[in-house]
Design a protein around this nucleic acid. Structure first.
Lengths: 201, 201
DNA sequence: GTCTATATGACGATAGAC
DNA sequence: GTCTATCGTCATATAGAC
């Protein structure tokens, strides 16, 4: 009947499990139990294994989707800028978008930021390729700004990039709604701090 | 015989276990096993329980000493400044000292920064009082700089403080010796970024 | 104080009924 | 596809010898 074929039910169930996992990991960190994830997905622990071979597989997929989701938002935000945008304007859009993706726009991105620091060696290695690709995209953004002469000569852009990642990812640990600051204000503050620093001017 | 009484042997052993735990946690994160800690301390797993009631007790003590160690270094660095130092100079010294304490000067501080984000609810709550006290000291540093008019009016100092903590603590995840950057250079970069931002000036 | 040996419990993972 | 039931493993924790 339905002319447009809907995605297979198993695909949707798999997605439901991943959604649940992303939420639970973003709340409890890497140590979260499969039973909690199963419960949130509305099934029993054993049933998860029809869709995933192991806990590691599930974690790996959440991580991958987390980086993918963050990158989708960053790329979209940068892409929305007019072609006349300067490298620094593009970098600002990226910082805003990444921060917003961590602070609640995507459970996957939040989960990724929250647990990436607690991964055991095996998973960390497997995740490194995706991390590197994402980091390289950022390096391009920083590099373009640097070549345009918009970044101060004293700044080590690699170090600056890692400091920025730390500041943004760490928001998953402390930022909560109802703290008197909105996600948008937080994102603006991040841009402000990284572009001009704290000092009065 | 020995006129100056040395500290009891049990105290030294306890310290040896804590040192081992701090190192192992800083390398492997919160998921590290007691057996690894025991091995590094030169004993068997069961023997740890003569000195600590539980894994949680051991973790809690490492966390406490981690904050204490960081604060010792920060307070000492700030205290070394001449009394004529400005609030911003004091804040700079604090950022330098905290960053250095994370990047290898104290295994406890490194371990604390590395695992504080992965703590299960129980331990996280227990640790909160120490965190708050440390955060309050930083709030004083920021507050003094703000009242002196040295911090830009657009900056939300609470948000800025949390961004700074994130950037500094995250260095425990990526900074390694032999990366072409020394700990001192890293600390200087942190000050540079947070004081003046990336922008050319 | 530290050892060996073992108890305990949790959680990931599997098997088979439905 | 999901369930119930269970297995196997591993890490924390305890007991008792030395």
């Amino acid at each position: 009947m339905s002319a447009a074929p809907r995605e297979a039910k198993s695909v949707r169930t798999r997605r439901r499990i991943l959604d649940a996992a992303a939420e639970v990991f973003s709340e409890q960190g890497y140590g979260a139990r499969l039973s909690d994830i199963a419960e949130r997905a509305g099934m029993k622990t054993g049933s998860l294994y029809y869709h995933f071979d192991s806990r590691e597989d599930l974690v790996a997929e959440v991580l991958r989707l987390g980086i993918e989701g963050a990158w989708d938002q960053v790329a979209a935000a940068v892409g929305r800028l007019p072609s006349t945008a300067t490298p620094m304007e593009r970098l600002a859009a990226a910082i805003r978008a990444h921060t917003l993706s961590i602070v609640g726009r995507s459970a996957y991105a939040t989960a990724q930021a929250r647990i990436v620091g607690s991964l055991p060696g095996e998973l960390a290695r497997a995740h490194r390729k995706d991390q590197r690709a994402y980091g390289d995209s950022w390096r391009d953004l920083f590099g373009a700004a640097q070549r345009a002469g918009d970044i101060d000569g004293e700044i080590d852009v690699f170090v600056a990039q890692m400091l920025a990642f730390g500041a943004m990812n760490w928001t998953s640990e402390w930022f909560r709604d109802g703290l008197g600051t909105t996600p948008e204000q937080l994102a603006d503050q991040a841009v402000l701090v990284f572009f001009h620093g704290l000092s009065a001017r």
